[in-house]
Design a binder for these strands. Structure first.
Lengths: 192, 192
DNA sequence: GGCCGGTGATTGAACGTTCATTCATTATCT
DNA sequence: AGATAATGAATGAACGTTCAATCACCGGCC
């Protein structure tokens, strides 16, 4: 990784953290720059505009998620085991790097997520679609549109993360219930 | 409903629509006022500040959702039927009033959703929790924390709506698959 | 009825702040 | 020395909020 890529990523990570803490509102370029230890103007050496920076951040986060999840997948296992690995790896990742989940959620429900944007190539989306397609073709998942399966599973995972985040303090008693969730999701999507 | 309440709601609905179209970024008071046919200053007759307006909008949307869903619930039916009613009514409502779903999603993942805010009384949250609690106590749902059940179901419903919104144009072939989703969710949460 | 004065809602221009972006200058590297 | 990167003060647009001025309405009085 050359020096430029390094500094670019420094800026992206700085924006990511600010967005997690304060939302899109709370990440002025001045702050992003300060946190990345560069001058405000320097951001424009790496990005055309703030909007372009946000879009690039979106690509960056999705590629990091893809890297992490795909390298921990073992296609030689049977699909049920792969599903639970997928679930656990995804929820762990979103908890370790809470800013990933927070950013993706804010981005998805924001006007950045235009129709044009959705025409961009999306390796993470393609990977998950292929993953669930394999589950269907091996006869272990209900024969539905893999896009739908994927969205249902991701929606549940995100709900779980949100639950853990919001009720962090209060949930000693319910902690065991949370382990049952991937099983519930599996019961919903498996071929039966 | 007196005249003041009327105009207050006019302003809230105007903000709601702008937020759906352009996000929190894209709803300056000047625009909210213009769309509601009042002067910018008048907004401050009804709300202390823009932030307070957004918080009140949140209360307003949740109370509208509660009104709609609770009045269409029939507690004398068995719980499985009530669940499918609940699902259908919620997804219909979110489709008819897309701005409700869009606003709630943006609000939830924004910094408006502080911890203090979550201590506010929340009739809609309490209603859904009680709803799922009845399902558990009648032995038809898995005996889990009803908050968790509720969140899983809502997460799936929202994923479905998002799917329909994004792929509106392309999905003639997958439309039938979408009908199976409430059944999948039910299979995941029912006592077995 | 017609007029008056007063009360409270409504207005929108003006204010001060914040922000994204620019660019002349300076520093760093090759 | 020349090229490239980095700086941060300056700029102008946009925003939330204020407030002096205007308007709409109503009861009381002639």
């Amino acid at each position: 990784m050359d020096q430029n890529t390094n500094k670019k990523i420094l800026i992206l990570e700085s924006a990511l953290e600010l967005i997690r803490e304060n939302g899109f509102h709370g990440c002025p370029i001045s702050q992003v720059a300060k946190q990345a230890s560069v001058a405000a103007g320097s951001v424009y050496t790496y990005f055309e505009s703030k909007d372009e920076m946000i879009l690039e951040l979106h690509r960056y986060v999705k590629s990091e998620v893809l890297k992490e999840i795909s390298e921990k997948d073992h296609p030689e296992k049977n699909f049920e085991a792969r599903f639970f690995d997928f679930w656990n790896n995804l929820t762990s990742l979103y908890q370790e790097r809470a800013a990933f989940q927070s950013f993706l959620e804010q981005f998805t429900s924001s006007p950045y997520n235009t129709e044009t944007m959705q025409l961009e190539s999306d390796p993470w989306g393609e990977w998950t679609e292929a993953f669930f397609k394999e589950g269907i073709e091996s006869g272990q998942l209900r024969p539905l549109n893999p896009k739908i399966l994927s969205m249902m599973v991701m929606g549940s995972a995100i709900s779980l993360i949100r639950f853990k985040t919001y009720f962090k303090t209060k949930t000693a008693s319910t902690a065991q219930d949370l382990h049952l969730i991937p099983k519930m999701v599996w019961d919903g999507i498996k071929f039966q």
